[in-house]
Simulated assay, not measured.
Amino acid sequence: MRVSKKDADVILNAIDQWEEEQVIDAQNATQLRKSVNVYKDDLGSLTFYAFVAAVSCAILAFGAIVLDEKWIERMRRFFAFSEVLIGGIFLILSVLLIGFAGKRKRKFPDATLSNESFNILAVLSLGVSITYLTRGLGEGYRFYGLVVLVLALSYGAVAVYLRSKLIWICALLALIVSWGIQTWTWSGPAHDYFLGMNYPLRMTVLGGVLLAVVLFLRRQQWQKVPFYEITVYFLWIFFLLSGLFLSVSGNLSYDVWSNIRQGRLLPWALGYTLLLGGLIVLAYKLKDEIFRDLVLLFFLLNIYTRYFEYFWDKTNKGIFFALLALSFWLIGRKTEQMRKRFS
């Protein structure tokens, strides 16, 4: 039976429920699952790419019109607008866009892609509003990170109101940016260390703390963690990516790092590799396929990072890329064998 992916999810969930309630036995459930074939929805793919193009063009148009300093300055001189007033105008526009997006969400609840693409306008407008309101505070203002934190909280509130995963991701990104900006401001004239931590270590610590908080709230059966799954996977990506940069740089400033041999950073690389190994074991125990694939991806990135790090200057480039090609071929061959085995 050939069905769409959406219909297949409904059918497979029903089969799982029947098997759990012992309406059918395991053998019949397996046969029913094998009879379900998912066909590729080309129209759905076209819709997705069309909305991606629409969002990209909207961002470019918004940037060309709104973020053009000459255009803004011309408008300010003509109307004698202050930066605070411009920020207030965009704040009102943001509220109107959010209200319209909420009505559209209620009217067309299944139009996910079009709703999310429209939400981009509210995100951009709110960001411009906060930016110009902050610029109105003057050049000596030193708490821009806290302003971005306000923007992150605003995005979070809007995301919960509109039930928008896209805006929630923007909120998480803004939270990370706020930490980076404010710790840079507080890190002294050299801007190398904050509380003895360089940038990669700061970001790794932030990722670990946020992950611990979200997982703790979930473990306490606090069911109101908004967008739990997307939050956890996003934070894992951020944590592992920050850890990868940390394994390359260590807790060193750029000036020190650029003048030492990479062999001195081997303990950092080894620690990151051991962390990934432990997470792979955890992923298999939890039977979380997405988490498992994510950690395996970073494990491969870690291996190839070490390969470039330790062998780029010492190996003939022809041999270097030949070995790289062979490794990718072996990975592809093994993956194909596994896919055939489980399909």
Rank of each mutant, 00 (worst) to 15 (best):
F239V: 06
L241F: 13
S242F: 06
G243R: 01
L244K: 09
F245Q: 12
L246M: 11
S249V: 03
S249A: 09
G250T: 05
G250M: 06
N251L: 05
S253G: 12
S253L: 03
S253V: 03
Y254V: 09
V256L: 05
V256H: 04
V256F: 03
W257Q: 04
S258F: 02
S258W: 02
S258T: 06
I260V: 14
R261T: 11
R261G: 12
Q262R: 09
Q262L: 08
G263C: 04
G263E: 13
L265C: 09
L265R: 12
L266V: 14
W268S: 13
W268E: 14
A269L: 12
L270W: 08
G271Q: 02
T273D: 08
T273N: 11
L274V: 15
L274D: 03
G277H: 02
G277K: 06
G278Y: 01
L279D: 01
L279M: 14
V281C: 00
V281Q: 01
A283D: 01
Y284A: 05
K285R: 14
K285S: 07
L286R: 15
K287F: 01
D288V: 01
E289F: 07
E289D: 10
E289K: 09
D293C: 00
D293G: 05
L294M: 13
L294N: 00
V295Y: 00
L297R: 02
L297F: 13
F299E: 03
L300T: 07
L300Q: 05
L300S: 04
L301Y: 05
L301A: 14
I303A: 12
T305M: 15
R306M: 15
R306D: 15
Y307N: 10
F308A: 15
E309W: 14
E309F: 15
E309V: 12
Y310G: 13
Y310W: 14
W312Y: 15
